[in-house]
């Protein structure tokens, strides 16, 4: 128990040094940047900032996982460094690479110099010849950056364990130069689409946040704020329709970003309410799979009935 208290005491000291941000500030900060959120998200972001732990965000596509990082970078007025993961991504693409071509050219140019071999070697293995990839960039920043590691589930397991090492030690060793320690520990956001299970070790290192499709109230607020000039009746209809649409069994469920795209499209067409023709003509904005499109077209009548959009004919 005594040890615990000692630890807490130590923590208190360090937090005074880190800028003291309150929980409510986070929510306000995100809102100012146009990101509407709930308590769970705000709390996770807050704790991840304060405890300096990476935040692992999971959820279906298009609910604003990546957006968190972007908004956070804006709110903290700092750089966003993005590492997009893909199958086959390896350490050289994430950390650093030597600029071979430049080194070679340099050697050719200095061929007839009187420099000794050691000296030449020292010059070409210099930071000037180093291509910094996202992870190295992130730890060599002057100001605490936001590091976004996007779609971590797409990378290989080897890369994941490599990442684990970087995330825990915050240092990178380059054999020719030496070890580079992080000047500022970056604010890390990892996103995943749950296509595969992440390793337990990585999960334990992070705080976890699951973002689901927004409920009606939240989605409606976001639609209204993100598409200025939209008819508020239309916004309501769009949101209700999307909420119902997600209950249909589909290959790819439309996310919040599809809702916003649709709202923007309809608003720029100066449409003030939904009807069958409008929906059928603009369905391509929301649904990106031909099978889903067919499915939705078949059940469009039922969907419209549920959402209270009565076809124009009935109105007359």
């Amino acid at each position: 128990m005594g040890r615990q208290r000692c630890r807490l005491h130590f923590l208190k000291e360090t937090i005074h040094i880190v800028e003291m941000i309150q929980l409510d500030d986070i929510k306000r900060m995100l809102q100012v940047q146009g990101y509407f959120t709930d308590d769970t998200v705000a709390m996770s972001v807050f704790l991840s900032m304060q405890l300096e732990k990476p935040l692992l965000v999971e959820g279906p596509a298009g609910v604003g996982k990546t957006e968190i990082a972007k908004v956070l970078a804006k709110a903290m007025d700092t750089k966003l460094i993005r590492l997009q993961c893909y199958e086959g991504l390896d350490a050289t693409h994430a950390l650093y690479e030597w600029n071979y071509q430049r080194q070679l050219l340099h050697l050719k140019m200095t061929e007839h110099n009187e420099q000794s071999l050691e000296e030449k070697e020292r010059t070409i293995f210099n930071e000037a010849f180093l291509l910094k990839r996202p992870l190295l960039q992130a730890i060599t920043q002057e100001k605490k950056p936001v590091l976004l590691i996007d779609e971590i589930d797409r990378s290989d397991e080897e890369f994941e364990s490599f990442l684990l090492e970087v995330l825990s030690d915050w240092q990178i060793t380059i054999p020719e130069i030496g070890t580079i320690h992080a000047s500022k520990i970056p604010q890390v956001i990892l996103t995943s689409n749950r296509t595969r299970e992440l390793s337990e070790a990585l999960q334990r290192r992070c705080l976890y946040l699951y973002i689901d499709y927004p409920d009606f109230e939240k989605e409606w607020t976001i639609v209204k704020h993100k598409t200025p000039g939209i008819d508020s009746k239309l916004a309501g209809q769009i949101t209700r329709f999307m909420q119902e649409l997600r209950t249909v069994k589909m290959e790819k469920k439309p996310g919040l970003s599809e809702t916003l795209d649709w709202a923007k499209a309809l608003a720029s067409l100066h449409i003030d309410h939904l009807d069958r023709v409008v929906i059928e003509q603009t369905l391509g904005v929301v649904i990106k799979d031909w099978k889903d499109t067919r499915e939705v077209q078949l059940s469009l009548g039922e969907l419209m009935e549920k959402t209270g959009i009565i076809p124009r004919v009935d109105k007359l």
């Binding site: 929980l23 308590d39 769970t40 709390m43 704790l47 405890l51 705080l207």
Partner: peptide
């Protein structure tokens, strides 16, 4: 425990969200 240091744990909702996170 560290997280609780940072929040107002008198508020039961905040307390819950923090532990959940």
């Amino acid at each position: 425990l560290q997280a609780l240091e940072l929040i107002d744990f008198g508020n039961s909702k905040t307390f819950f969200e923090a532990l959940k996170a």
